[in-house]
Simulated assay, not measured.
Amino acid sequence: MTFSGEFLAFMGLALVAIIGGVLLLNLTRVIHMVVALIFTFVAIAGIYVLLSAEFIAAVQILIYSGAITIIMLFGIMLTKHDDEGEPKTGKWRKFLLLLGVLGFAFAMYLGIYNFNIDQVPTTLHENNTMQIGKALYSKHIIPFELVSVLLLVALVGSIVLAKKEDKEADKE
Rank of each mutant, 00 (worst) to 15 (best):
residue 60 Q to C: 08
residue 117 I to P: 08
residue 105 A to Y: 01
residue 162 A to P: 05
residue 6 E to G: 08
residue 147 V to K: 10
residue 90 G to P: 02
residue 49 V to F: 01
residue 135 A to S: 12
residue 156 V to E: 08
residue 133 G to S: 06
residue 90 G to H: 00
residue 20 G to V: 02
residue 98 L to F: 15
residue 11 M to V: 12
residue 4 S to K: 03
residue 38 I to Q: 06
residue 96 L to N: 14
residue 171 K to H: 07
residue 172 E to G: 12
residue 160 V to W: 04
residue 169 A to C: 02
residue 144 F to V: 01
residue 95 F to K: 11
residue 43 A to F: 01
residue 25 L to P: 00
residue 87 P to F: 03
residue 74 F to P: 01
residue 99 L to C: 15
residue 118 D to G: 08
residue 115 F to R: 11
residue 53 A to K: 13
residue 85 G to D: 09
residue 69 T to A: 12
residue 152 L to W: 04
residue 43 A to L: 06
residue 122 T to K: 12
residue 48 Y to V: 01
residue 54 E to H: 07
residue 166 D to P: 00
residue 103 G to E: 09
residue 86 E to P: 05
residue 109 Y to H: 14
residue 120 V to M: 03
residue 56 I to L: 10
residue 151 L to V: 09
residue 53 A to F: 08
residue 54 E to D: 12
residue 80 K to E: 06
residue 133 G to R: 08
residue 172 E to V: 05
residue 100 G to Y: 09
residue 64 Y to R: 07
residue 146 L to Q: 07
residue 55 F to L: 08
residue 91 K to P: 09
residue 153 V to F: 04
residue 59 V to H: 01
residue 26 N to G: 09
residue 33 M to Y: 00
residue 104 F to H: 10
residue 38 I to K: 09
residue 101 V to C: 10
residue 5 G to D: 07
residue 134 K to G: 08
residue 117 I to A: 07
residue 70 I to D: 04
residue 6 E to D: 13
residue 53 A to S: 13
residue 42 V to W: 04
residue 23 L to T: 03
residue 135 A to I: 02
residue 80 K to F: 04
residue 64 Y to A: 04
residue 147 V to E: 00
residue 148 S to I: 15
residue 53 A to N: 10
residue 126 E to Y: 12
residue 172 E to P: 03
residue 103 G to P: 15
residue 79 T to W: 07
